[in-house]
Simulated scan of single mutants.
Amino acid sequence: MAGPTPAYGGGPPHATQTGPREAVRGFRPTVGAGLGFLTLGLACLGDLWWRDATWLDDTGPGPAFFPGFLSALLVLLGAAMALGIDEAPETVAAGEDGASLQATIKFSLLLVGLIAAFPYVGGLLGLSLFVLLETLWVERRSVLISVASAVAAYCAIRLVFVVLLAVPLPPGPLRWIG
């Protein structure tokens, strides 16, 4: 019986382990996420095509324009992530799986908190607080950058969803904020 394989701390160089653990060892989580985004974007575009929704007509953009635009962006983002275009070489080489797992858990907790608090805090305030806490807690940015990001998110969400698309976001207890 041969000793441990090189993947497990030694052994002859010709001995290789061929199990599911080794097959996944070189797989980066961003590749999986990228393939997921790519698949979701293509599925959404296919659904819009299948429903024969109107993209543009004589009056301007139709009901499929904005979802189609976002789906196309999701396809591009997924392709970039799957190909590793979005990562800096030092991040890929460092293999910060522990840090990315911790950030993913923090982000997921914030997302669950946003979903739970959304009807009570309100749409604009809830999403802005989410961006503020995400940049402070998950990304560990400075307070100034975090507040600026939250204000920019508030303005962008208000412009796109409230003004342009007229989406009725829940107002929450501070109705004057949005």
Score class of each variant (00 low, 15 high):
residue 141 R to V: 04
residue 176 W to C: 09
residue 60 G to P: 15
residue 173 P to G: 04
residue 7 A to H: 01
residue 65 F to W: 13
residue 107 F to H: 09
residue 50 W to G: 04
residue 86 D to G: 11
residue 64 A to V: 04
residue 24 V to I: 05
residue 98 G to E: 06
residue 52 D to P: 02
residue 35 L to T: 00
residue 71 S to T: 02
residue 53 A to N: 06
residue 151 V to R: 08
residue 14 H to E: 07
residue 5 T to I: 01
residue 112 V to M: 14
residue 3 G to E: 01
residue 120 Y to M: 15
residue 99 A to V: 13
residue 90 E to V: 06
residue 118 F to E: 07
residue 88 A to I: 03
residue 8 Y to R: 15
residue 120 Y to D: 11
residue 131 V to G: 04
residue 135 T to G: 06
residue 54 T to M: 14
residue 18 T to R: 14
residue 119 P to N: 14
residue 145 I to K: 11
residue 134 E to P: 06
residue 63 P to I: 00
residue 115 I to L: 15
residue 11 G to R: 14
residue 100 S to A: 13
residue 35 L to D: 00
residue 40 L to V: 04
residue 76 L to D: 09
residue 120 Y to L: 15
residue 148 A to N: 03
residue 163 V to E: 15
residue 12 P to M: 07
residue 116 A to M: 10
residue 80 A to Y: 05
residue 88 A to E: 08
residue 77 L to I: 12
residue 12 P to C: 02
residue 167 V to Q: 12
residue 137 W to L: 15
residue 129 L to S: 08
residue 102 Q to S: 11
residue 38 L to S: 00
residue 157 I to Q: 08
residue 132 L to A: 03
residue 27 F to G: 00
residue 24 V to S: 01
residue 143 V to C: 11
residue 128 S to P: 12
residue 110 L to P: 14
residue 14 H to T: 03
residue 94 A to Q: 09
residue 52 D to K: 15
residue 176 W to Y: 08
residue 145 I to R: 12
residue 167 V to F: 07
residue 59 T to N: 14
residue 23 A to V: 02
residue 46 G to D: 01
residue 49 W to V: 09
residue 44 C to A: 11
residue 66 F to S: 02
residue 3 G to D: 01
residue 9 G to K: 11
residue 96 E to C: 14
residue 112 V to Q: 12
residue 35 L to I: 06
residue 135 T to D: 08
residue 98 G to Q: 04
residue 125 L to G: 05
residue 11 G to P: 00
residue 123 G to T: 05
residue 127 L to I: 09
residue 23 A to S: 03
residue 17 Q to T: 03
residue 160 V to K: 07
